[in-house]
Write a protein that binds this DNA or RNA. Structure first.
Lengths: 334, 334
DNA sequence: TTGCACAATGGCAACGTTAACATTTGGGCG
DNA sequence: CGCCCAAATGTTAACGTTGCCATTGTGCAA
């Protein structure tokens, strides 16, 4: 009955290979100052013993974890999967790992996210903000812990990154005006959504910048059902030839609502959404929409932390523009 | 100019509080054998110095990380977000953290996931399998590393957990037969999908178990477009009164395809999907579908690892049934 | 008074790794 | 032949924490 040793350490490998612990360490890091034949001998010993370097020992010695923490108040949320893909991709690139943590949203503060992370093996942290934390203005990141917030608001002490919601609306409105539409009607979202309100501002201000007084908006609640109702309401407005909905579900609902009143899309009315979330779900339409690069948002956040770890610091704010994807729900009036 | 000390350790706290390091440690863990007033003094010192316990030191000493690694070949995939929600929730419950890693799928082996994890601070690992790894049969988990696979296949050495795809089909078929339909037509998916093929088996075997020879299936490709085509094809079959599609996108496409041929849903034909992925996207239908509890799948995996850490081991295989959600796309013929 | 149990705290060592410095070896060159 | 340099390897200590055991103090029964 062989006693199972708890774990294999450099000491064991060193003994078997007949070298010092330091030489083993150097071999692990592929230092050029170890003779190739010695390296081979050490590697053979590692293989034989099944050596795996111990993360805790290394981190303790080095004072670095090579890990980025991600704090989320809600895991489930549009775009989170793509963002995580970005986190993972960037982490991989830098040789980092990602530690994911769900933070209780009561209270909804950056401080609670920060203190949660402080006990974990991370060199920096990313906080995904879905709404406005109570302490946004007063929050100070932990000393030595690079902190990046995923939000479109700017913070004096933390770098921030997010999709550019304002620019998204600008693109859509200018696209529609460029197709000869005289104005653009808007289906908004509940007022508590930060990003939704920013889209609304973009719509309003872009119209004004073109000398057009924004028409009365229709307030929706993100669901296709509310878009359907909005479509029926707007079907009666003869000045309405172009509709911009705050998301794709409402855009699709709107199309069906318009059609239920006998108005055709895009022949009579053009419709544009945001999010590119319909994917393959709808068979009869290719909705014109704006696609956001959430993966890039995630990558930027982790890149920032990894770079800061290498020396360069400095607070930065990044807004990443979306791309308008042309479908077949917009008519060119020119 | 105050020199910034790298980090505050128990030693610093002990000195300031006038106690030994051990007493500080005991206070951190809220040991009952420290006088309340001493504890308070130590806590005050910790606050004053901004003490945060060092993860590496603790892990090194204890030999445990209180962390579960999650290896994914593809981050983006149906249900992954819900699974992660489950990972995070269960981890939270046990005082664990989650470390997320994207594993390169070339080659697509469990070994590559395992060796990737071995260098990270984790006590156990979860691998999300999307397809069949080349080494599924021969894989051996790392000694001392509890490994759970998210797959419906059983493994001799690793615990496994996944949605019960077979039972899902059984539920749907029996539901439709129970509503008086004489048979159930099926829209399948590409043959490379493990879970899709299992759904197909479930459909076929349940029909046979009821003495019904399965009709010829229509092969789809997960998209609504393919469902649309399938709907048009099935519209001409007078024996077809009930259709079961392998996912919701195809089910919705199928409905639109049937309608384009003048057949009404559910009056003429009943349609059922799988996944509950339409959500709020479609305004005019509440699709009858099967909802999977991916969060529970995720929780089960992490629970298993945390429990194993506490002693109980043993390989287990868990299939979690979905729930049929009634919408308004099925007609009761009875 | 002594002895004993128990509560509260301290001292020491070890977890696995690696930076910094020390030592040995081999070779080229004056 | 002796000197010096560079390459290769070894030795020591420290990172922060906590398990184990030793020590001190306090109250109570014999």
């Amino acid at each position: 009955m062989a006693a199972v040793k708890k774990s294999v350490s450099v000491k064991d490998v060193a003994r078997l290979a007949g070298v010092s612990e330091q030489t083993v360490s150097r071999t692990v890091h592929d230092s050029p100052s170890v003779r190739p034949e010695t390296k081979e001998r050490v590697r053979a010993a590692m293989r034989e013993l099944g050596y795996r370097s111990n993360f805790a020992g290394r981190s303790l010695r080095r004072g670095k974890f090579k890990t980025v923490g991600v704090a989320m108040f809600n895991i489930t949320g549009t775009g989170n999967l793509d963002r995580m893909e970005g986190f993972a991709a960037a982490a991989d690139k830098h040789g980092y790992a990602i530690t994911l943590t769900k933070v209780d949203g009561h209270p909804y503060t950056l401080e609670s996210a920060s203190s949660r992370m402080s006990a974990l093996p991370v060199d920096g942290m990313v906080v995904i903000m879905n709404r406005m934390p109570a302490d946004f203005g007063t929050f100070e990141p932990l000393p030595g812990m690079q902190t990046v917030l995923v939000t479109m608001l700017e913070h004096p002490l933390c770098s921030t990154v997010d999709n550019d919601q304002f620019d998204c609306s600008r693109q859509v409105v200018e696209y529609l005006l460029g197709r000869g539409h005289k104005t653009v009607h808007f289906i908004s979202c509940p007022e508590r959504s930060l990003s939704g309100m920013r889209r609304e501002e973009g719509w309003r201000e872009t119209l004004r910048a073109h000398g057009i007084e924004p028409p009365r908006l229709v307030r929706g609640d993100w669901t296709a059902q509310s878009g359907y109702a909005a479509g029926q309401a707007l079907a009666e407005d003869p000045t309405c030839t172009a509709i911009y909905a705050s998301n794709d579900a409402m855009a699709y609902g709107c199309i069906r609502g318009l059609e239920s009143c006998g108005r055709r899309v895009p022949e009579d009315v053009s419709v544009v959404g945001v999010d590119d979330s319909l994917g393959d779900i709808v068979p009869d339409r290719r909705l014109t929409t704006v696609r956001f690069d959430n993966k890039r948002v995630g990558m930027w956040a982790v890149d920032k932390i990894a770079d800061a770890d290498g020396g360069a610091s400095g607070v930065e704010h990044m807004l990443i523009p979306g791309v308008l994807v042309e479908g077949d729900t917009v008519r060119d009036l020119c």
